[in-house]
Design a protein around this nucleic acid. Structure first.
Length: 131
DNA sequence: TAACTGACTCGGC
DNA sequence: AGCCGAGCCAGTT
């Protein structure tokens, strides 16, 4: 944020909330999927959101990552990138460079905050888990 | 209590 | 080719 402050949402139509049903919260589902990501692979927020049936909630996926720290079953949040393969969330890591280091430790090469061969390493839950 | 924000993404202009 | 608006859920102010 910086330049101009813009108010978002001028007029919201209808909430039309889609109740999933799961006894778990949205975050729990996100974490569950993230934990399924094989070592050395990466995926995107959007892919996870889509897999969960809430394609437009990609934003929440990222937000869930923010809450994933300190979770019991470790959540490999570093394997989740944006659709460009960019390490958008690295600044939220502790320390920030931990994200890239972890990826490299798994054999994933990162250049300028971007995963090399993102397409090849991309792990699509829709396909891999065959929903 | 209402409003805002945020690790995103897509479609329009 | 780049900027703007909108949709999503939960936690904060």
């Amino acid at each position: 944020m910086a330049k101009t402050i813009k108010k978002k949402s001028a007029a919201k139509p209808l909430p039309e909330v889609k109740k999933p049903d799961s006894q778990f919260s949205f975050f729990e589902n996100v974490w569950a999927v993230v934990r399924l990501i094989p070592k050395g692979r990466v995926t995107s927020y959007g892919a996870i959101a889509k897999y969960l049936g809430t394609a437009k909630s990609s934003r929440m996926v990222g937000y869930a990552m923010n809450a994933s720290f300190g979770q019991k079953p470790k959540v490999p949040a570093h394997r989740v990138l944006n659709r460009n393969g960019l390490l958008t969330g690295r600044h939220h890591f502790n320390p920030p460079e931990a994200m890239q280091e972890r990826l490299e430790a798994e054999g994933i090469k990162v250049k300028k905050d971007q995963v090399v061969d993102f397409e090849k390493l991309f792990w699509d839950p829709m396909k891999q888990l065959d929903i």
